[in-house]
């Protein structure tokens, strides 16, 4: 991704900023010009809570350029509690931990480094919801 693209999407990557449609009141992530649910003009910005659950997951062994240092890693479809689904890596997990339906929460982590002189990209990953201390 280019510097300009990373700058444009910073609020999405750092804070899961989406929208709530003023017509049908459904949550949208990332922001769109047209609501995917009702096709009306999409609405004002709304920051998601960052809580959700694992809809599906995969542990990836063959990975694209730019992600070799991290492999293997687990990617999930996370269903946010507001409704939208996002694709993101899971973090702070062991293999045995992951299951469909598991509650997760967003954390900000390093996504990739673009080589020695390149940008370091941060964004959302999800980790299991931490149990409250007694």
């Amino acid at each position: 991704m280019s510097i300009a693209s990373l700058w444009r999407t910073r609020q999405q990557r750092y804070s899961l900023q989406g929208e709530i449609c003023p017509e049908c009141h459904q949550a949208i992530f990332p922001p769109r010009d047209v609501c995917p649910h009702c096709s009306e003009a999409a609405g004002p910005l709304h920051t998601m809570s960052g809580r959700g659950e694992v809809y599906s997951y995969t542990k990836m062994f063959n990975v694209p350029d730019g992600f070799l240092a991290q492999r293997p890693y687990t990617v999930a479809l996370v269903k946010l509690e507001e409704g939208p689904m996002v694709t993101a890596q899971l973090t702070d997990i062991t293999d045995e931990d992951v299951e469909i339906g598991m509650p997760v929460e967003m954390v900000t982590r390093k996504l990739r480094e673009e080589g020695d002189g390149g940008e370091i990209v941060y964004g959302y990953k999800f980790r299991p919801v931490l149990a409250a201390a007694d």
């Binding site: 063959n62 990975v63 694209p64 730019g66 694709t87 890596q89 996504l111 964004g123």
Partner: peptide, 12 residues
């Protein structure tokens, strides 16, 4: 921006 950026491959 919202799939490949997170390291998911096509197989993934």
């Amino acid at each position: 921006e919202y799939e490949a950026a997170h390291g998911v491959s096509f197989v993934g």
